[in-house]
């Protein structure tokens, strides 16, 4: 029995873009992977930007968005598979300012938070908020935590946080409302480096406990 194709709905955005809605976040990531495959294979019409987000993928800079919208309705998008290659590993000191709060929300000790968080494998669903800031999925629902009621005016660069279904790392000091569990020395963003972003949509990520 073959899995049903994810339902896709393409909404026009202005005259040169399409917002493609998927049924779930996982389906949106699968669609993004398929778009990258088709672009690499030369079977996607020229497009300036492919921007995945929580449940959508935006295609911007299309000459004929209507033609692609009609074509998309016939696409069969394979589900995400466990991808080849090694994940990016980020070393983390689990000493974040909200570690106790997260431990209480999870109902475990602070050491367990580090063990659980570093034992999961994540995937960059999309980027936004700041250059190189990835929204990583892979937290089981019971580990979802709310944002802080009052955002901090300054979160240090490298801070590892949790918010809703996501975990992520602040590439630079900025205001932020995520619950902070630790900090990494990894450089998430360096505009002079190629590639500038350590994490981009589709990248697999693991965290590693360091003392």
């Amino acid at each position: 029995m073959s899995a049903p194709a994810p339902r896709l709905r393409a909404l026009p955005v202005g005259r040169h873009a399409l917002l493609v809605e998927a049924a779930t976040g996982d389906d949106a990531q699968a669609l993004h992977a398929e778009l990258l495959r088709r672009r690499a294979a030369g079977t996607l019409p020229p497009v300036r930007e492919i921007v995945p987000a929580a449940r959508t993928v935006l295609l911007d800079g299309l000459a004929e968005p209507r033609a692609l919208a009609a074509d998309l309705a016939r696409w069969s998008v394979p589900p995400l598979t466990a991808t080849e290659g090694a994940p990016v590993v980020l070393p983390v000191r689990y000493d974040g300012a909200d570690l106790a709060e997260v431990a209480a929300l999870w109902g475990v000790s602070e050491e367990e938070v580090a063990r659980i968080h570093s034992g999961l494998e994540f995937r960059v669903a999309f980027c936004g908020f700041a250059p190189g800031f990835g929204y990583l999925t892979g937290l089981p629902e019971r580990l979802h935590v709310p944002r802080r009621a009052t955002p901090r005016t300054a979160v240090p660069a490298g801070s590892v946080g949790l918010a809703g279904p996501y975990t992520g790392v602040y590439p630079r000091s900025s205001p932020g409302g995520w619950q902070l569990v630790g900090r990494t020395d990894a450089v998430l963003w360096d505009a002079g480096r190629e590639p500038a972003a350590l994490l981009s949509p589709g990248t697999r990520v693991r965290f590693e406990v360091v003392a």
Binding site: I50, D60, F126, F129, A196, A197, S200
Partner: peptide, 8 residues
């Protein structure tokens, strides 16, 4: 152009 997927 071309970097929107990285938040740029």
């Amino acid at each position: 152009p071309g970097h929107a997927h990285l938040g740029v």
